[in-house]
Design a protein around this nucleic acid. Structure first.
Lengths: 342, 342
DNA sequence: TATTCTCGAGACGTATTATGTCCCGGTTAG
DNA sequence: CTAACCGGGACATAATACGTCTCGAGAATA
């Protein structure tokens, strides 16, 4: 017996097209609501008139509300969208991609969201939503969650929502100062995430540049030492993966470091570690906090990174053999699979 | 979690309508093929041009063939239609109706086909097809199937198809002469059914009017006695349900009988028994064969009857408490549920 | 407070599609 | 032989989809 969708393909070949169109409208709306017709049409790359037809239809169906501030999903719209997600993933073949990528990378789980965050920036938010969704399916009560910095993790924080079974969950930054801008620092993201989740957080204040003596005395400081222990005990880690060169530049690393990275052909970066194509560590930012080997003791590691330009970095990092869940986007996933098949 | 169809109802109600239209075309075509555009359009009560659009589409999809004799379903069309049946039942809410009716009548299973056989005659054929389909899901090898007469059972015979697991199945008429026209007599229907099923049948020749002595000597006749025993051993019974008065008139019953039926407020009739609104037997045609109490020993009893005008009769008959499967149509089902809710 | 921006809604001409209505030549049954 | 029915072609018209522009209202900003 064929599936319902297969039957419908025969009887209504354009069904999927329409369904996909409406689904995309709802999904984009969820990300940017409240939003007006023109901007939304622009985001979806369709003309205003077409969007208008869809939107009036969806409004009649009670899936969204129109007001002077713009359009917003109704309760029912949110609900429908949620239920629609797995269906559309299957339709667009994303679950297929997920399977293949899982096999290629040798990791236990891959989640792929549609789009390419290099092309359309809001895809990062979708990755964020997916990561949060995955996180919440885990038993989080009284657990410590360590998070890193980066723009992708900022998206994860953006999409964080409170949940009943996050009672006592504590968010901490994975590692100390890594030279990022404030909004992308682990501390900032950690705080934001905890606030949005309606739960607690602890911060780790470590200056970027530090002499050896100052460093030694700092880690003996009782306040710091206590947090460090909590961080080391983290059972859940959520982190991003960056392109080595980009990250080094963004962190305003010294010429020496840049040189080292270039010489050793580093391609990937994750929480202060730089990796070459084979997954070997070629450089490490000197700071306190979670170390690479600590990951092995974690119960759940989620790596979030997308955009086709990150494909190489993702692949290199996962060659370390870390059993991590990968949350990525269609662009990166396809690039990864293509690159591998060459 | 709602089903995919429920989601689609919200997201693409218009497409489901189209799907329904195309489904109806295919279904009607199956019943009357080969048939031309104009007649088919007439049957479906849509204009020729609309049908034409659908038909050309369906032809392009390879679901039907057009020839000079008319249109016919292809193999693929037949297959699709079959797989589509449960889906469309869900869409049109028929499976919901089935559940409700099952509860109201207190019987184990109800099958409803779309339409109303009082309004559109070919719905009887659909009921026939449904009954045959249900019958074939039962283990029929070497079993005896007793059938009654009536126009509805004639439709069942029409739709009978051979099947691999009907080896050794024997068709017999449930009861002797009941005064029907030849084409609606149990004997005729029994023979037709067996022939279409590519299996055996035995007939029971009993004249309509018979003196008591002749009757007694007849049932002692070896040939008759043998068949009678087979009939009594029938494990499967398929029968119709009629309106009491209509049946009495059609059978040209005597004024005496008509009077009795009227006086006792008989509303339903089934294989020669007349029932009042409470399900009590108020009259019984004197003939040999299966008796009402024999039904209790049957493994499978299927009652087939449709059309809103038969609602009262169906309800009355099923009040006897017989554990029967009911095959009916939308018209009767709705009338039954409405009547009950008043 | 003044100004600018974005919002939904209306309007309207045009391109596209759906539909109603005929007609035609061929095939078949009576 | 003819009447009925078949698919297919044709065409005017109605309905719909779409691109484009405009307007007044509220929100944000300065």
């Amino acid at each position: 017996m064929r599936s319902l969708l297969a039957l419908q393909q025969k009887l209504l070949p354009d069904l999927l097209e329409v369904m996909n169109k409406r689904y995309r409208v709802l999904r984009q709306l969820r990300l940017t609501q409240p939003i007006g017709r023109r901007s939304l049409a622009n985001s979806l790359d369709i003309t205003e008139r077409v969007l208008r037809s869809e939107v009036t239809f969806l409004k009649d169906q009670g899936l969204l509300d129109m007001s002077i501030q713009g359009m917003q999903l109704t309760e029912e719209g949110e609900q429908l969208l949620m239920e629609l997600e797995p269906v559309m993933n299957e339709v667009s073949g994303l679950d297929n991609l997920e399977e293949r990528l899982k096999d290629k990378l040798g990791i236990p789980e891959v989640l792929i969201v549609p789009g390419d965050s290099d092309v359309t920036p809001w895809v990062k938010k979708e990755m964020g939503r997916a990561a949060v969704g995955r996180l919440k399916r885990f038993q989080l009560e009284s657990k410590v969650v360590a998070v890193t910095g980066g723009t992708t993790l900022a998206s994860v924080a953006d999409m964080m929502v409170p949940s009943l079974d996050m009672d006592g969950t504590l968010f901490v930054p994975a590692r100390g100062g890594l030279g990022e801008q404030v909004e992308n620092q682990a501390n900032t993201i950690c705080a934001k995430m905890a606030r949005k989740a309606h739960t607690d957080y602890r911060l780790l204040h470590v200056p970027d540049q530090l002499s050896e003596e100052a460093y030694q005395s700092l880690i003996e400081e009782p306040g710091v030492k206590e947090i460090l222990e909590i961080i080391k005990s983290a059972s859940i880690v959520v982190h991003g993966i960056g392109d080595a060169k980009t990250m080094a530049v963004r962190r305003k690393s010294t010429g020496q470091v840049l040189e080292k990275i270039k010489e050793n052909h580093a391609v990937a970066e994750a929480f202060g570690y730089y990796f070459n194509q084979s997954g070997d560590v070629v450089h490490k930012v000197k700071t306190i906090g979670l170390q690479l080997e600590d990951l092995e003791r974690s119960e759940l590691v989620i790596a979030v990174a997308g955009g086709h330009s990150k494909a190489k970095a993702i692949e290199a990092y996962l060659k370390t053999g870390i059993q991590s869940i990968l949350v990525t986007d269609e662009g990166a996933a396809k690039a990864l699979l293509e690159g591998n098949s060459l």
